[in-house]
Amino acid sequence: MTGPLISVPELQRVLADVTVLDVRYRMGDPTGRTQHEAGHIPGAAYVDLDLDLAAPAGEGGRHPLPDADVFVEAMRRAGVSNRRPVVAYDDWSGHAAARAWWLLRHHGHQDVRVLDGGWAAWVAAGGEQENGGVSCQPGDFTGEPGSMPVVDAESVTGVDVLIDARAPERYRGEQEPVDPVAGHIPGAVNVPTDRNLDDHGHFRDPHELGELYAGVGASRDATVAAYCGSGVTAAHDVLALEVIGVPAALYPGSWSGWITDPNRPVETG
């Protein structure tokens, strides 16, 4: 496997040789485990985004990065090992799976993919399913954070291109359904995550993604970072940039962390 994405046919060919993580999630809708037990890719372990891929909300935002020990232990419970490839999927256009991909890469795992098209693509292709819980052989994952670039509130405005991955109306400050302050970090440009996908919910081809991000100045010659509302969906833009070979940092605190300090500037429009 090459690149950060894997297609359904590719996964079907290598299924016996990879660890699959089911990261189905909807904000405010804790039914991922129920959906997993109703049907999942054979052998896939369920991973809870709120419990396993984030720390409790606080000054670091609504979904701060998890404590390294908590994350590593969760991955071991899910069967993740250092030398065995991992594939993550969800039913949320790849947003939760991208968070799992980013965290595993950040903690040093070198062979992680996101299932392109997610659960919907697997079902549409007639992929085999199983139901009930999954009992995994514990993995030996021993990762430590630091392998993927991050920025914080002090350094986020110092990058050449800062990408806001939220919907345009939230970026402009016209609507804010989640956080108490509307707007965006001054100087940020808007690339909503849905622009990474085609009409079928798959990532656009590298040429199209390259044009999309070149349009906001993101290139290998620039320092690039991405943020969103809570640090989860921004990983989707980081993943898209990885597809085209543009390294990008993540601002884990994102907008929900930025606004915890009322002295930080806010821009609208």
Score class of each variant (00 low, 15 high):
7 S>R: 04
11 L>E: 14
14 V>P: 14
18 V>A: 13
20 V>P: 09
20 V>N: 09
20 V>A: 11
24 R>V: 02
28 G>N: 06
29 D>T: 05
29 D>C: 04
38 A>Q: 15
41 I>T: 10
41 I>R: 11
45 A>E: 06
47 V>K: 03
50 D>S: 14
55 A>D: 15
57 A>Q: 12
58 G>F: 14
59 E>Y: 14
63 H>R: 13
64 P>S: 11
65 L>F: 10
69 D>I: 12
82 N>W: 12
84 R>L: 06
86 V>Q: 04
87 V>Q: 09
89 Y>P: 09
90 D>W: 01
94 G>K: 04
94 G>D: 11
94 G>L: 08
96 A>D: 02
101 W>C: 02
103 L>I: 06
109 H>P: 13
111 D>S: 10
112 V>D: 03
115 L>D: 09
118 G>A: 02
120 A>E: 13
123 V>P: 01
127 G>S: 07
131 N>F: 05
138 P>A: 00
142 T>M: 12
145 P>V: 10
145 P>E: 15
145 P>A: 12
149 P>Y: 03
149 P>W: 02
154 E>F: 03
156 V>Q: 00
157 T>F: 00
160 D>R: 02
161 V>Y: 13
161 V>Q: 13
163 I>L: 15
168 P>N: 02
171 Y>K: 07
177 P>V: 01
179 D>E: 15
180 P>L: 09
181 V>I: 11
183 G>L: 00
188 A>S: 13
196 N>R: 10
196 N>W: 11
196 N>C: 15
198 D>H: 10
200 H>A: 14
202 H>Q: 14
202 H>G: 13
203 F>M: 13
208 E>R: 12
210 G>C: 08
210 G>K: 06
212 L>W: 04
217 G>F: 05
218 A>I: 00
218 A>D: 05
219 S>C: 07
219 S>L: 07
219 S>K: 07
226 A>S: 15
227 Y>P: 08
231 G>P: 05
236 H>P: 13
245 G>P: 05
247 P>I: 02
253 G>R: 06
255 W>V: 06
262 P>I: 00
262 P>T: 03
265 P>D: 05
